[in-house]
Structure formats: structure tokens, C-alpha cells
């Protein structure tokens, strides 16, 4: 029982480490996709956020400022994607692919210049996003250790779960949410009702970049304590997968990310103890995702106007 509590605590701890970056990005992806703009540039926006957050924290010593700036950097690339696709009607897949090249390309190039040819940027503990409730629990008891594992975690982790509720509220309970969902379904109808489709979509893609940037910053400023060119390897695509998994709903994306994070946590515990090949264990999150899809999720309904450029005729 004791060891179960311990291991379960560690799994949850790891879940809460792996989930937040994905979840920030997935919430971002929801905004873009639901408003009708395919955004496969999440990965590039995350890299931009990861780098900028780290650099700002490194120079200012303020993790909070760094975190916000990470979001802003993601938003900047979001704005590029938005301008190309929403204003100019560019192909969304192509533009997203370009963002995935430009994001890492530009930031790593800047990193080389700023840090004299090394592209690893380390953070000291007080430049990292702080953990909450550290030392609150009595780790000498089994229960206390469990609580410490689960609840003494980064502020960014608490924030992301709050964000899920906020995004859900925005989507389903506010005027902006109703309109952005309408824009993803039938932009012409929105235009006839006097809703500015271009502005709505532009805003959504920017928000998507901002949240992705936060997700990226979360990786380098919470999970690890440094920026490296391979800090973001595929998390952006996993976030997109989580959104497809969650049928384009923030609450669904939460489930997708938690499933993925939990499997990654499982991986950590099993990898240490079971003796099964580490590479096979690493496969678990991906295999489980496919199995869950087949068994429980099935077909998802894509917003009707998703991926289709909307242009006003003059």
C-alpha cells in the first residue's frame, strides 16, 4: 500500500509535469481551429515562447515577466500566421509549416548571437517558475509525501487548469465565444449579422499563438531549467492531436492532454522498475491514444468552415 501510494504519487507528479505545456498549446489550438483556421504552426510558436521566456527570465531574473513574454513571442508568430491566412487568404497548412520553420530558425539564430555560439540557455532556480506549496506537507508520512508529490507543483501548472475553465467559459458562456464558434461554422452567416469574421479569426489565431508560447515557456521554465534547440520536439503536434482527440472542445482537449500526460507519467514509473525495454515503454502514450481513439472516441466533427479561407468580396 505504501509503495502504491508512493508510486501513484509519482505518476501523478509526472502527469502534472507533462500535461501543462501540452494543455496550454492545446487550448491555443482550440481557439484557432474552432474559429476556422488550421494551425499546424503550434510547434514553432511553442519554440518561440520557450526561447523568449527563458531569455527574458535569464536577463531580468523575473520568471513571471519571462513567462508572459514567452506568450507574447508566440503571439507574434500567431500574428504572422493570422495575417497570412486570415487577411491574405493563404493556404493554412502551408503557412503553418512555414511558422514551424521560422519559429525555431529565428530564435535559435538569435540565441547563437546572444550567447556566443552556444545555444543552451540555463536558468537558475530563482529564475524558474516557482513551485507552490513546497514544504507545506509533512513528507515524513506516506500521505504527506503523496500530497507533496501532487500539490507542491509549479504555479504554471495551477494556472493551466484555471485556464481550462476560463477558456471553457469564454467558448460557451460569452459573446466572443459564441461568435468565434459561429465563425468556424459559417463565416458568411456571421458577416451578414455584422460580425467581423476577419477580426475574430485574427484575434483567435493570436490567442492561439499566445497560449502556445506559454506552453513553450512552461517546458523550459518549469519542466526543465534550460532552453535547448530540442526543448520543443513534437509537443506542438501532440497538442494538435489532443485537440482532435477532444473533438475541438477545451474540456475534450483537457482529457486528451491528461491521458497523454498520465501515460507519460506511467512511463516514468515503469521505466524505473519494470525491466521492460525503455523504448517500448516510451511508446505507451502513443499506443494508448490510438487505442482510446478506436474504443471510445471515434469520428470527430470538424468545424464546418475549418481550413477554408474566408475572403470578403468588395
Amino acid at each position: 500500500m505504501t509503495s502504491f501510494m508512493n508510486e501513484f504519487g509519482i505518476i501523478l507528479y509526472a502527469t502534472l509535469i507533462y500535461t501543462p505545456p501540452l494543455l496550454y498549446a492545446a487550448l491555443g489550438s482550440c481557439f484557432s481551429e474552432v474559429s476556422g483556421v488550421v494551425n499546424i504552426g503550434i510547434e514553432g510558436m511553442m519554440t518561440a515562447g520557450a526561447f523568449t521566456g527563458t531569455v527574458v527570465a535569464y536577463f531580468t531574473g523575473s520568471p513571471y515577466l519571462g513567462f508572459i513574454c514567452g506568450g507574447m513571442a508566440g503571439m507574434l508568430f500567431g500574428a504572422i500566421h493570422a495575417f497570412a491566412t486570415v487577411n491574405l487568404g493563404a493556404d493554412q497548412t502551408i503557412s503553418g509549416t512555414a511558422i514551424n520553420m521560422l519559429g525555431p530558425g529565428i530564435v535559435i539564430m538569435i540565441a547563437r548571437v546572444l550567447f556566443n555560439s552556444t545555444d543552451t540557455i540555463p536558468l537558475t532556480p530563482d529564475q524558474k517558475i516557482p513551485t507552490l506549496f513546497k514544504g507545506v506537507f509533512d513528507t515524513s508520512t506516506v500521505f504527506g509525501r503523496f500530497m507533496d508529490n501532487v500539490f507542491a507543483t509549479y504555479a504554471s501548472t495551477y494556472l493551466v487548469f484555471v485556464m481550462v475553465i476560463v477558456v471553457w467559459f469564454v467558448f460557451y458562456k460569452t459573446r466572443f465565444g459564441l461568435r468565434l464558434r459561429a465563425c468556424g461554422e459559417h463565416p458568411q452567416a456571421c458577416e451578414t449579422l455584422g460580425i467581423n469574421v476577419i477580426a475574430t479569426r485574427f484575434a483567435c489565431v493570436c490567442i492561439s499563438g499566445f497560449l502556445s508560447g506559454l506552453g513553450g515557456a512552461c517546458v523550459t521554465m518549469a519542466t526543465s531549467n534550460q532552453f535547448r534547440p530540442i526543448s520543443i520536439v513534437g509537443q506542438g503536434f501532440i497538442a494538435i492531436a489532443a485537440v482532435l482527440f477532444g473533438k475541438f472542445r477545451p474540456q475534450g482537449a483537457l482529457l486528451g492532454c491528461l491521458l497523454f500526460g498520465f501515460c507519460s507519467g506511467l512511463k516514468v514509473v515503469l521505466g524505473g522498475s519494470s525491466g521492460v525495454n525503455v523504448h517500448l515503454i516510451s511508446m505507451i502514450p502513443y499506443v494508448v491514444t490510438v487505442i482510446v481513439l478506436v474504443l471510445f472516441v471515434g469520428k470527430s466533427r470538424v468545424p464546418a468552415a475549418n481550413g477554408k479561407p474566408y475572403l470578403k468580396s468588395k
Binding site: L178, E185, A189, C190, L193
Partner: peptide, 28 residues
């Protein structure tokens, strides 16, 4: 319009008020 400008997955009420939604504070 001839081809109705309606959002298929939305309710009748949501469709009618879309664009001029009544709000209470920040919420619909």
C-alpha cells in the same frame, strides 16, 4: 438569403441572437 445563413449545430435562439447577444456582465 436563399441558402440560409444558419449555424447548423447552434440552437434556434443562438442563431437569432447571434451578433446582438444580450449579456449580463461578461457572460451571455
Amino acid at each position: 438569403h436563399q441558402h440560409f445563413m444558419l449555424i447548423q449545430p447552434f440552437t434556434v435562439t443562438e442563431n437569432i441572437v447571434l451578433g446582438t447577444e444580450p449579456t449580463k456582465g461578461v457572460a451571455l
